[in-house]
Simulated assay, not measured.
Amino acid sequence: MRDLNLYNFKRALPRMSWTQENLYNLWRRSLGELANEADFTRTQKTLFQQRWIAKRLVRAYHGDFINEKTFKHVRPRWGQTEDYATQLNKWAKLSKAVDKDVKARRQEIDGGEQEELPPVGSLMFSEVERRIDVVIFRACMAHSVYDARRMVVHGQVLLNGKKHQNANTRLAPGDMVSVDPKVISFLQPKVPSADMSSEELAADEPKVVTSAYSTPNPSSSQPQSSNPIHDKSLTPFQLPAYASPFIFIPAYLEVSFATCSVVYVRHPTARPGYSEIPTPYDADGEVVRLAWEWYSKVRPRNRSKRQLAREPENRQ
């Protein structure tokens, strides 16, 4: 990347990262002094400026590690029927004539009842969520998507049991990604430094969990070593600070932390009022809608299925 200053406090652009600086920028964008920058309810900015600001925010989180030319080709997986395309145009408010036609058609079919549309703008990032580096980050096996990319490029990731070093690969349903446990930072024991006090060293020792089903030994105050819960030779787990806002796994992934692997079960979906794609912005909000409108105008011509099948990184 040309700009290595990812967590600049002046720009405060949220990224796919667990760092404290990113959490602070995310708070500033949602509740802090920069929350009104993406509020276009009462603004003097032109429509072009609004779309560009929304595109800048969305691009920083969902695609700052992707080339702009490649990101323009990202498109949602929706049906291509004329009626559904008309509904998408109505949702994006691209044409008043289409809006009137859809409203009249629904009144004839449903007797005047309005049908709620899914947040199709968030589906624009469904192809990004298929990337192998993003899947590793969503599975909570890397602190950031940049760490996940380094894991893939350095040959520390297996795709279906074989070493894979292309970070641009888009997974197909059923693909399994395995990560070397030695490169997952929070599975490594802490190395005590010389300036650490005895209290800090005691706090870093693994905590012993007492099981409700274990029988205590009256001759010893220590728990039974035969119980695997009390076995100190197990893999340590050092959760980084301020990680709780990011510890979640999307519904389309099946993660096994015992084997450090994740299965890409299916493509992300969305329904009215709900989207499976994680995003710091409202999936049906103004920022995502304006960004969708921006890329719908600058997006290049649709590729055919034959052209998409020839792409080596797309596994369909």
Score class of each variant (00 low, 15 high):
V157S: 11
V152A: 08
S256I: 05
E37D: 14
L290T: 00
M16I: 09
A309L: 12
Q20S: 12
C260G: 05
T70R: 08
E115L: 08
D110V: 09
R51V: 00
D147S: 09
L13D: 02
L13N: 05
N217S: 06
S95D: 13
H267Q: 10
L94T: 09
S193I: 08
G111Y: 15
P119S: 05
F246T: 02
K96L: 06
S197F: 10
H73E: 15
S296R: 11
S244Y: 12
E37C: 01
T169S: 04
A172N: 11
K297D: 04
A194S: 13
E313K: 04
R105N: 10
Y7T: 00
R29Y: 02
W52F: 02
F257Q: 07
E127V: 03
P278C: 04
L201G: 04
M176S: 04
Y146S: 08
R299N: 05
V145R: 15
Y213L: 03
D180L: 00
N36Y: 09
Q165S: 09
R59K: 07
R310L: 15
R271I: 07
K163D: 00
W52Q: 06
S144R: 11
A104C: 05
L239K: 13
E276P: 06
S17P: 13
N302A: 06
S144N: 12
F248Y: 06
N227Q: 10
K207I: 01
L187D: 04
F65M: 02
L31E: 02
S144M: 07
S296H: 11
D133N: 14
R75T: 01
P250S: 06
C140P: 09
V298N: 05
V128S: 15
D3L: 03
A92E: 09
F248V: 01
V208Y: 14
M176K: 14
L26Y: 01
Q222D: 13
E116L: 12
R170A: 01
I249C: 11
A258I: 06
F71M: 10
A291G: 03
N5I: 04
N314W: 12
Y213F: 10
D147W: 05
Y252E: 00
M196D: 15
L308S: 03
I229N: 11
G63E: 06
G174N: 03
T41N: 12
V287K: 03
E286I: 08
N302E: 03
M1A: 07
A148D: 14
R315M: 02
A38F: 04
R301I: 08
S221H: 13
D133C: 05
A251K: 11
R310E: 10
N166S: 13
F257I: 02
E205F: 03
Q114C: 01
A104L: 10
V153Q: 15
K182P: 00
Q165T: 13
V208S: 09
